[in-house]
Design a protein around this nucleic acid. Sequence first.
DNA 1: CTAGGTGCAAATAATTTGCAGAGGC
DNA 2: GCCTCTGCAAATTATTTGCACCTAG
Lengths: 324, 324
Amino acid sequence: MEAPSAFVDRLRPAGGKRSSKRDLIVNVFLRQEGHLSADDLVDVLRREGHKSSRATVYRTLQWMADAGIARKVDFGDGRTRFEHSYRHPRHFHLICKGCNRSSEFLSSDVEALIEEIADVRGFAIGQSVVQIYGRCDECRTGRRRAAGEVPVERLFARDALRIAIQTERSGLDFYSRAARITKDARGRRVFRKLAAEEQEHLGKLEARYAELLAEDPELESRPTFLFFKGAASGLFAAGAEELDKGADDRQALRIGIRCERGSHRFFKRYGERFEDSEGKRIFLEFADEEREHLELLIREYRSLAARQSRARSKAKARAHRADT
Amino acid sequence: MEAPSAFVDRLRPAGGKRSSKRDLIVNVFLRQEGHLSADDLVDVLRREGHKSSRATVYRTLQWMADAGIARKVDFGDGRTRFEHSYRHPRHFHLICKGCNRSSEFLSSDVEALIEEIADVRGFAIGQSVVQIYGRCDECRTGRRRAAGEVPVERLFARDALRIAIQTERSGLDFYSRAARITKDARGRRVFRKLAAEEQEHLGKLEARYAELLAEDPELESRPTFLFFKGAASGLFAAGAEELDKGADDRQALRIGIRCERGSHRFFKRYGERFEDSEGKRIFLEFADEEREHLELLIREYRSLAARQSRARSKAKARAHRADT
DNA sequence: CTAGGTGCAAATAATTTGCAGAGGC
DNA sequence: GCCTCTGCAAATTATTTGCACCTAG
C-alpha cells in the first residue's frame, strides 16, 4: 500500500525545487476528503495554524493538477474545485442541488458507450465528464444516512471484488456446462481445465472479499459505486443461456471466447485504474488469467476447426472415390 | 413548424413587461448557432449595428435561461456559454481541446444507464451533463470536413427516422417469423395483424425520410447524432434470433412484449423531446402504436396462458377419470 | 550564487449590482 | 403613475500576475 509521500514523490516533476511550504500544502490537501476550492484549502490551512497566501495555494493547486496529484472538477458554481487522486480513481459525479454535496460513481457501461461514440466520430478521448444534477435521497426523504465516510478506494475494491466473484461464479457454471455438452474429447478437457481454474480463483477472491469486509464492517451496506451491467446481467450467464439453447462444440468455444474477451477487458481497464496495490494486483492477475483463458480457447477453436475441416475433406475424398 | 416568435411567446413568463431591447437581443440570440458567451452575443449585436450594455445582455441571458429559451453550458474555460433551445433538443457534448469547437450528440443508451444509476442511488435526476474532452478528427488528421452547418434538429430527425425505420423493418421481420412458427391459430392471427401494421407504418416512415433528405441533400452524409444501440444492434432483430432458436407460442409472445416495450420507451422519450412538430408527431404516434401493440400482445399472452391452463386441467381431469 | 518558490498587493476577467432615468401598460 | 427594464459605472468574486524577497541545491 503506497504512502501519500511516496505517491507525491512518484508524480513530482523532475527538476523542480522542494519547498517546505508546498510540501505542507500538498500534505494537508491529501488528508482532505471530497472537493475543495482554493479558498476551502486556505481555510483548512488556517485552521491547522499555518498561514499561506492565496496566491501560493492557487499556484500549488495548479502544480498538483499538472503533476496529476490533483484533478480539477467544476460543478458550475463559478469556482473551481480540486480532488486529489491519491487512492482515488477517476469517476463520475452525482451532484445534489439541495445540499450541494456530491457523490461519486463509476460505470463501465457508460465508459464503454462513450468510447464507442467518440470512436464513431473520430474523436480521440482525453477525459470525460459525467455529472448528474438533481436531488439526493436524503434531501428528498429527510432520512439521514450513515454519516461515516468510507474512502472511495474501499468502495471501488468492494465492488470490483463483487464483480470479479460474480464473474468467476458464472464462468465456473459456464465451463461446467460447456464441458458437459461438448462432444469432442479434447475440447471437453479444455473446458474442464478452465472450470477448475475458475473454481480455484473463486476461492481466492472470496477470501480477499471477506478480508476487506473484516477491515471495515460499514463497507457492506454502502451503495454501489462501480456499475457494470456486463457482469451484473452476466456476460457468462448470457453465454450459459446460449449454450442451453443448443450449441455445438464450435459455438461453445466461440461463446467462451466472447465472454473471456469482455471479462479480460473489464478487469484490465479497472485493474489499471486501481490505486490500492493489493486490489490492483488481484485485478491485473485476474485480467491476465482471463487473457490466458482467451488464448487457450482461441487455440482450441482453431484446432477444432482444422480437425473438422480435415475430417470433411477426408469424407469428401471418400465420397469422390466411391463416385468414380 | 413553430416560429421563433411563437416559441418565445410560449415560454415568456407571465407578468413581465415587454421591451424592444430584450426582444431584439432574444431574436438575435435565436438566430445564432452554437454556444455563445455573453461577450460573444454583445459582439454579434454590435456587428449588426445595435448597441446594448453588457449588463442588459447578461440580464437577458439569465432571463432566457430561467424561461427555458436558453440553456447554460459550461466547458470549464471560465466563461459561461449559452445555447438556445429553439428546435434544439437537450444533448451531450464532444469538446475539442485543439480547436475549441464542440459537437453534439445524444445517446439513448447513456441516458438509460444514467437513469438506472440515479435510481439505484435514490437520486432524482434534474439534468445531466456528459462532456467528452479530447481532439477532434479534423484537428488530428488535418483534413477539413464539409463546412456547411446542418441544424441539429435535422440530424435529430434524420437519426430518429433511421432508427424508426430500422425498428419497423426488424419488427416486420420478427412478426412474420412469429406468425410462421406460431401453432395457435388465434396467436398467429395476432402476429399477422401486427406484421401488416408494421408494413404500413414502415411505408410512412420511409416517405418521411425521403422527404427530409430531399429538403437537404447534405444531411445524409453527416455523422451520427443520435446513438441508440437498442435499435442498431436490433431489439427486434435479437428477438427474431431468439425465435429461430426454437420458441413456443408463449415465448414468442413474451419476446414480442419485450421488444415492443423497449421500442415504446425509446420513441416516447425522444418524441417528447423532439421540437420539430412534424417529427414530434411521427414519433409520438409511433410510440402510441407501439404501446397498442404492446397491450395487444399482453392481452394475447394472457388469453393464451388461460386457454393452455384450461386445456391442461381438462387433460388432467380426463387422465384422472381414466385412472379411476 | 541563482533558478525557483513565496508573499503581498495590484491587475484581470467574468459577472453582478446600485441607481438614475426611460418606457410600456 | 407605477413598475419594470436599461445603461452606466462601481462593486464583487475568483483567479492571475508583477515584483521584491527568500531559500534550496
